[in-house]
Design a protein around this nucleic acid. Structure first.
Lengths: 129, 129
DNA sequence: CTACACCCTGTAGCAACTACAGGGTCAAGA
DNA sequence: TCTTGACCCTGTAGTTGCTACAGGGTGTAG
């Protein structure tokens, strides 16, 4: 299959597919006589994996590790679980940060009495103490 | 005051201060004979404002708008409130996205039976359907 | 007088793409 | 047969918000 087909089959942009190849996440496929990339089902599987992991928020570095691990079927699942746990903790941290931020911002907004900028509490909040 | 003093007074890195100047967020200060940047209290106030807005998660573009608005004291607070509301909505969207992601990832992790990679549910989840 | 902490400019790097510019290829319709 | 349009190629630069050098100059304390 050509790059456009692979891309649409995985809801990926063509440029992104080429980018994944460039950074070594997706192996370079065979080429047609016209120098077009020709992908097989193994590429489709690998790209699906990458996309799914990305959808779950894993970084490309984590995806790279997961791909390496998934190639060694006899290994223990421990390392995979570890990467996922670390990622989950990171998501929790982000949610916590955003929730605290949300609270503070909504407090700032709540203080707005809709007058002029001169006595705008939102602007005032950001001024020097 | 010199750039290092301004930076430490606002918990900012020196490079970041220069960066803000480069992108036109902080006006270029006077220079000493030795070509050192010499800041006054107006710069301190402006940088404090920028940092506070950044802490609240506003993008630099939003900060730029807020700064412009805060310069025109007679204007209505409406535009300021609008920017803040938009930002709050964006934070809510992010929290929602992360929460959904968290749920899905924890489900994936929960299915891990700690065997080998061959029958790892985490890896399996990311394989082709 | 010599360390050492500070200052300067300018450029490159980070993540993870995205968007060109400037070309080549191929199948279908007039 | 020609040409239009959709696809493909490479390579580079842009995005956000900094951060980290490299390779210099300056100022002060001991």
């Amino acid at each position: 299959m050509k790059i456009g087909e692979l891309a649409s089959a995985t809801a990926t942009k063509v440029e992104t597919v080429r980018y994944y190849e460039k950074i070594g996440l997706l192996p370079p496929p065979a080429r047609t006589f016209a120098n077009y990339r020709a992908y097989g089902t193994d590429h489709l599987a690998r790209l699906s994996f990458i996309r799914r992991a990305r959808d779950l928020g894993f970084t490309l570095e984590a995806v790279r590790e997961l791909l390496t691990l998934s190639d060694d079927k006899s290994q223990s699942c421990e390392a995979v679980d570890g990467i996922a746990q670390t990622h989950l903790a990171e998501i929790d941290r982000k949610i916590g940060d955003l929730t605290a931020l949300r609270l503070e911002l909504s407090r700032v907004i709540g203080s707005c009495s809709h007058g002029t900028v001169a006595d705008c509490k939102i602007i005032e909040t950001m001024g020097p103490r």
